[in-house]
Design a protein around this nucleic acid. Structure first.
Length: 197
DNA sequence: TAATGGATGTTCT
DNA sequence: GAACATCCATTAT
């Protein structure tokens, strides 16, 4: 009997970013903080690739803000935007290649009461249904930027439930690179940042 | 259900 | 000075 690796290895991220974004759908994000465990299924992602993608933060070269994207795969890139929000990405592709996957929505699994408190929100469908909502629910901020995945703060693992379809669309909230079909989501999930049409 | 505009601060031009 | 990988409350349909 073949044993299955539960935690996604660095090699999972050291690949084409679009494939990583698609295959992250259904995986489980685990946030460990203060002895507590918060977790959720990834139901929505987007790929950002500096080489040809003007919507990518690293498209115009390396800066203090985006330097983590230029580093090795399997690290967290967290940025601050719109004056009040944080967003979580996983760095992909080899060291020196700037690309990442934005985590846009989760289906809450563990620590739901803590997430409700963090979000001041009782509706489970409104805890992690957006990139800035899930960082608020999971207490992710600038201190997470540049940390290695699968360490003491954030772990990503396989899920035993894989009976779902993956939808593809253009990305949300951007003005450049709008034509790329780089958004992936679990079809029929009630926990997406936008309802399916 | 859809469209609008305000909140808020960091980064880049 | 402008833009920004967003969210929320308010208003209109």
């Amino acid at each position: 009997m073949e044993t299955k690796t539960l935690i996604l290895p660095e090699s999972f991220y050291n690949r084409d970013t679009v494939n990583v974004a698609r295959e992250l759908i259904g995986k489980v994000l685990i946030r460990k903080i203060g002895g507590q465990v918060l977790s959720g299924r990834i139901v929505e992602t987007e790929a950002y690739i500096a080489e040809h993608d003007p919507a990518c933060h690293a498209y115009s070269g390396k800066t203090k803000r985006n330097e983590v994207m230029f580093g090795p795969p399997g690290f967290a890139y967290v940025y601050f935007t719109y004056g009040m929000h944080y967003c979580l990405n996983f760095v992909t592709e080899p060291d020196g290649v700037a690309a990442a996957v934005l985590i846009r929505a989760l289906e809450p699994l563990e620590g739901i009461e803590i997430m409700k408190s963090n979000r001041n929100q009782e509706d489970i469908k409104n805890l992690c249904s957006g990139p800035a909502k899930l960082t608020q629910a999971m207490e992710i901020d600038r201190s997470i930027n540049g940390i290695k995945l699968n360490g003491s703060d954030i772990v990503v693992r396989e899920s035993s439930f894989n009976d779902f379809q993956v939808g593809i669309s253009t990305r949300i909230g951007i003005n450049k690179g709008v034509e790329f079909p780089y958004r992936f989501y679990q079809k029929k999930s009630p926990f997406l940042s936008r309802r399916e049409k």
